[in-house]
Design a protein around this nucleic acid. Structure first.
Lengths: 267, 267
DNA sequence: AATTTTAGAGAGCACCGCTCTCTAATTCAC
DNA sequence: GTGAATTAGAGAGCGGTGCTCTCTAAAATT
């Protein structure tokens, strides 16, 4: 899916979404203007990046004087928050759709689908991806009450996959299962540190899951690694001509990660 | 090491660096002003972030009218490039120092030292880290001729560690060494795809190394995973109160990565 | 000593976020 | 239907930004 196509899908979704309940003509007009602002904002974000998002430019595109947009949006930061939530949901939708196409018992398949969906979305929506996972916009911190929900959709999906594999009895490789000569002795593979163990316990109770510390640690690492690899590609850390088939590289990385995280059940 | 301390070390280094060859008094003054601009820029970067870096503010701090700084720096982007190179070298110095403290044959120890050094530097220099590994500043792309050198110091160090472990005969876990029942059959563990194989071959010849495709793929993944984990922590993706001892979490992740990348020789 | 180079000042241009006031249109209450 | 209240938008203005241009004064060169 191309960048343009993905954005168009989002636009259509936004339109349909907000057009539902329309009472008075004024409210209808307001919602429509609101949608248009979001749409223009999305376009500006894609072209000029988060730091280059300008309310004045949005106003120009809207065909309105700059102060008028403040009737709809309190500040530039509020527009940024709207676009942030919007982007999180767009990514979440893409990931959900991709993962749900794979049978529930095919954990590694679902894991790979998740990873590929993240990468595809990120490459198609580089500026939005940068807004979500890049350097934080200086002087702006997202209001947690609005962003944590949409912002945790991907990790929630990943947790579901990991927990599914865990309860199915699939375990990560590593020292217990790996070559013995490299890990003789008293090494404690189970996660060390009281604080960390407590944190994992809190995660288990919060998410209602049973995966042990080792599985959780590897899951968190897989999560971070996926976004690390995607960020490297999107943000250009690999250099211009190092990898000519980054999709293939990413697939290999997903394979390794699936085994590392202990979800290589069905292959 | 605290943030302030690290920056102070950098400042001192810059001073010493550029103070060396001083011919005429005018040149001496010019170098000194240049240093001061870099120093102020670094401070502004730390406080206001890359997008908030303002030449006018630098001029104010320098005690000079805004147009005057253009005698020293062609544009805001050029100052950004200077700070970019500066930051890459600061990170490179930190990593080199940390890794070189560990015996050359202790590959996993050196790997862990590299990871910890990256994380420590990133946490101490969040804005500079964001400049290097966050979303690209919109409308600015770094001139490759100035930045690729300093920008590849960390991966160069990592390549050295990986190749050392490889030539020492240490191999990654995974299907050949891992549990057999999960990977029966005809799976090709060696990296698939002609393009990817060619890229790895190019990497071998460019870096003068011998590690096979599997080792290279895992090395690249380890590289991306380290920065993914650090970015998650620095950019706040984990949330505020999920992990109370992130250093311990990161150490566990480094352990897993070291085994994944096949450098768990001496433990 | 005369000339050239250079650092800095200052004004100005177009942009930015945001606030304030004013006008005109729409909606609501009666 | 008419008067009151609400609302959308216009416009001016504040202080900030990057950057260019011209001018002055000091320093270095000849």
């Amino acid at each position: 899916m191309s960048r343009a196509l993905l954005t168009k899908v989002d636009d259509a979704l936004t339109m349909v979404q907000n057009q539902g309940m329309a009472q008075t003509p004024r409210e209808r007009a307001r919602l429509q203007t609101m949608d248009e602002i979001l749409l223009i904002g999305r376009r500006h974000l894609a072209v000029h990046g988060a730091a280059g998002l300008s309310l004045r430019a949005v106003a120009r595109d809207l065909g309105v004087v700059s102060s008028a947009v403040y009737r709809y949006v309190k500040s530039r930061d509020e527009l940024l928050t709207l676009l942030l939530v919007d982007a999180y949901n767009s990514l979440g939708d893409a990931v959900d759709a991709a993962v749900d196409k794979v049978p529930e018992a095919d954990y590694s398949g679902r894991f790979r689908a998740l990873g590929r969906a993240v990468r595809t979305w990120a490459l198609a929506e580089q500026a939005r991806y940068g807004l979500l996972f890049g350097s934080p916009v200086p002087g702006y911190d997202a209001p947690a009450d609005q962003t944590t929900g949409p912002g945790t959709r991907v990790i929630a999906k990943l947790v579901g996959i990991l927990e599914g594999a865990y309860t199915a009895g699939i375990r990560a490789g590593g020292p217990p299962a790996g070559p013995a000569e490299e890990h003789a002795g008293t090494e404690a593979e189970s996660v060390p540190g009281h604080l960390l163990a407590a944190d994992f316990e809190a995660i288990r109770s919060e998410w209602g899951i049973t995966a042990d510390d080792n599985a959780l640690a590897r899951g968190v690492l897989a999560w971070a690694a996926i976004f690390g690899a995607v960020s490297f590609e999107v943000f250009g850390q690999y250099g211009k001509s190092t990898f000519h088939d980054p999709a293939a590289l990413f697939d290999v990385q997903l394979d390794v990660l699936a085994r590392m995280a202990g979800i290589a059940g069905l292959v």
